[in-house]
Design a binder for these strands. Sequence first.
RNA 1: CGGGGUGUGGCGCAGUCUGGCUAGCGCGUCUGGUUUGGGACCAGAAAGUCGCCGGUUCAAAUCCGGCCACCCCGACCA
Length: 586
Amino acid sequence: MRWTQTFIPTMKETPEGAEIPSHVLMLRAGLINQVMAGAYTYLPLGLRSLRKAERIVREEMDAAGAVELAMPAMSPQHLWEQTGRVAAFGDVLVQTTLRRKDRKVSVVFGPTHEEIVTTLALHHISSYRQLPVILYQITQKFRNEERPRFGVLRTSEFLMKDAYSFNASLESLNASYEAMYAAYCRIFERCGLTYLAVEAESGPIGGDASHEFMAPADNGEDTVLHCPACGYAANQEKAEIGARDFVPPKIPLHELRKVDTPGASTIEQVSNFLKCKPEDLIKTLIYVADGRPIAVLLRGQHEANEGKIRRAVGAGSVELAPPEVIEKVTGAPVGFAGPVGMKEKIPLWADRDVQKIINGVTGANAAEAHLTGVNLGRDFTPDHFADLRNALDGDPCPRCSSTLRLRHAIEIGHVFKLGTKYTDALGAKFLDANEKLLPIIMGCYGIGVNRILAALIETSHDENGILWPMTLAPYEVVVIPVKVPDEKLMAAAVKLHDELAAQGVEVLLDDRDHRAGVKFKDADLIGVPLRIVVGDRGLKEGKLEAKWRWEKDSKLIDLAAAAETIADQIRQERLDNARFRGRGKC
RNA sequence: CGGGGUGUGGCGCAGUCUGGCUAGCGCGUCUGGUUUGGGACCAGAAAGUCGCCGGUUCAAAUCCGGCCACCCCGACCA
């Protein structure tokens, strides 16, 4: 392809509003163009990379035994009502009404396709002999994100690979899950991404029923905890905290005192007012668990983890209590709850770290007042201790004796054992070998294809532009004739281009009549892995100059065998991204 | 949905507080010339309803009111 024939609108300056590297570079390199908040046109270069990611996903899905189909973006709203997901998605669901003569049809633009694929199973799967089967598609999904942001990372329309397994037994589900998990590892590997498979909230099945594939990146919206020593990794919702050994220091216990704290109700206000540290405060949160109030005690600097609370309490639902419940239970306005002298006797659940607080500070269950010198055992005794808070950087690993590291990450994939949620709701059953009618067991497996590109750029760029791995690069080689008006030089460049193309190499010929510097800058910006410079200096000696985007120095190659040499190197790099992976280490 | 910010040729910005000549600058684009290995130089040119609507005024990019769009932080995220 000649540069002058295609459409690559690069920009020297960063458009207003783009902040994170992937967004800035995708715009500057002419990969995408914004249409509105959360909607982008993929320009020729961006589309080429997107298609490459898509192709890798497709190849690995096929290799893992999944079969491709294509479901429509539009589906009838009643399907989504049957599964309760019109309410569950709320405003995120894109809905519209179609007029068809005198009728009106309510339709949903699919944010995902469980309802549709399960209905398909309902129609066509009735016997265990048809199972297992894994169906997948790679299609546009629609979600009305309340706040689209970070360029292509969070948009209202995006390309997603969604796969669904239909299984007759849990063992079969586990096998499908393992197959998808392994395929995901190969996909992200081939895309040149560094990733973690982290444990995530597992829903109805429990156990190891859900993993998120995360690309660690400073600008990621998700938070994961990772133990470099043993490899334990989980998202912050799920991450357990290991044993916290604690020897109580031998310091004298203060007397319990009630002090006025006018206007101070938050942790920050109270610790400022009383000149103590947040970790000395016993944060007391009133939750309603399955309709009953409970108190959750945490150290001041910690955040409650509602999932952990729900599991510890064994409740179906847990939410922060409304003000009137808090006032009724504590006898005080919101902000002054404490475990000592609460008006009503409700279960006290304490996070394990509360045991470390000596001479603590807590709400007095009275307006504008706190207690100081509060001590566990003497002044209050929790009914239960449990792990109730979000894990933090430096917390003990739950699997080994090391400590957890907190990292931000971009979620690029998710595998999930769904169970029978949708087959129950829609009545998709099969007859097993014993002639018993059972709901089909499902798994679902998603990959955000656009996010593969964003995550790659986010973690693979330098001050000049993108560093693509060969497997995702929009073009594999860029040939730059240094002087376009020089006919001999140009002829050599065209010949190389044609020979490379004939060998199946994706080659871009920068035939623009610009100064060399301009073309070098653009080549770096769009990140083509291999750059071949055709210049008069080298040409005199029958040489071309080859430079890998991520390496510092260029090498001379013989003009005579150039196409062969380059094609061989490209083919090798396509296989394993080995040079790319070694970037920066030479 | 709460808080903050921005809107001026294709892109990045100045001008707005303190109303007043023909609305500037850099990049890009076009023409001619000189150049040609890391975003060249000279000369010239095209390109703007100053986000939209209304108001105040002799006069509005500038002041007032309303609306819209975009961005950032937070909340939310099957």
